[in-house]
Simulated assay, not measured.
Amino acid sequence: MNRPSRRAVLAAGLGATATALAGCSRHPRPVRRLRLATGPEGGPYNAFGKALALAVGASGLPLEIVPVSTAASVDNLRGLDEGSAELALAMADAAEDAVLGRDSFPTPAAGVTALARVYVNYTHLAVPAGGPVHAVADLAGRPVAAGAPGSGVRVVAQRVLRAAAPAGGAAPADERPLGLAPSVAALRDGAVDALFWSGGVPTPSLSALARELPLRFLPLDAYVGPLRARHAPVYTAVTLPAGVYGLTDPVGTIGVGNYLLARADVAEGVVRDLLRVVFDRWRDLLREVTAGARLEPRFAISTGRVPLHPGAAAYYRAVYG
């Protein structure tokens, strides 16, 4: 019987030790599992969350991101404040409301912090191109899909409708609390005369609808000033470009930033690791969310009244000075 030589035994032992050490070096810390409150299935927040989970999973970090489907911004901020999620995506206006304790938030959400402003939502107000609605004021008494309860779409839709209402009057529309998919179906079927949406450009379900039903997108840029004065400077003037949704001319509308947020008690090292992945893989993260967007540090740190997480502040100082 041939016995292995001492040299072979030692080599095998050293190889096993090296393999074990390599495994330890890949995961020197326990894997941290973070729940990320996103949005409804098929929506841009959900797509971003799934892409981030895949990017973190491929990074080799001892970190797992678990996307959680929600109604979106307002629900996400409540979950972050209550501790049912460690991370969240939310529109800037809803995030400032949460931090300041106003409108949907009766008390300030003290533990909500920002990691980055990741991209801008474009407010869409779509009506059938052959219909009688040409301006927000024409929606008086008409059924309008105004976003699902707990969503950021609903926040901006209600603010636009109230800004368009006569002084002391009611909102100039019959608001229907519908998410994107039910809104698209309702507009297609004639159950509503208009739909609000806030998201990237183009939004695939609206592109699909425009191929079935020619759409008119109402200009909303005139409401940027009133919304900024009444609510927050998070609102900006942006443009739906010609070519999307069959538009022959650009349409001015309202832009609202989207924030990646975290509870303040998430460890600083975890936040730094996560942001490294976000900035390394931003093209993959935004590919299914909005065309042509870029993630740049000077843009990412613009989070208004929502304070940066200490780990995020340390990351930006270390990497960008």
Rank of each mutant, 00 (worst) to 15 (best):
G130E: 12
N258M: 15
R272T: 02
V136G: 12
A232V: 05
V144A: 05
V155C: 06
H124R: 07
P241I: 06
T123K: 03
G311L: 15
V277N: 06
S69H: 09
A313I: 05
W197Y: 15
S84M: 01
A22T: 13
Y245T: 02
A92W: 14
T253W: 00
T248K: 02
A164G: 06
L61S: 11
A210C: 03
A22G: 14
A22H: 12
A53N: 00
T236R: 15
T123S: 11
S302M: 07
L52R: 13
D273W: 05
E96N: 05
P214F: 04
A116T: 06
G83L: 02
N121E: 10
L209E: 11
P172N: 02
A72I: 01
T239S: 15
E86M: 04
G243A: 08
A146T: 15
L220D: 04
V156R: 01
T203D: 14
A148N: 04
P128C: 06
T203G: 03
V56N: 00
S198W: 01
A170T: 13
D81R: 13
L100R: 14
S73K: 09
A22D: 05
G57R: 08
G79Y: 00
R35Q: 05
L178V: 02
V144E: 07
R117A: 08
V256C: 13
A181H: 06
G43T: 07
A12Y: 06
T38R: 09
L80K: 06
G292E: 09
A232R: 14
H134P: 02
H231K: 01
L52V: 06
Y223R: 00
L115M: 15
G130Q: 08
L274T: 00
G321F: 12
A222K: 01
A94M: 02
A165V: 07
A210T: 03
G257I: 11
P177C: 10
V136T: 04
P219A: 10
A164Q: 05
H231A: 04
L218T: 10
R294K: 09
A126N: 01
D93L: 05
P28A: 09
T248E: 12
L261Y: 02
T203W: 10
G130H: 07
T303P: 08
V155E: 07
R281N: 00
P310T: 10
P106K: 12
S104C: 00
V244K: 01
G311D: 13
R117C: 04
T38W: 08
A163N: 02
R117K: 14
A12I: 07
A170I: 01
R305N: 08
A318D: 15
R3Y: 09
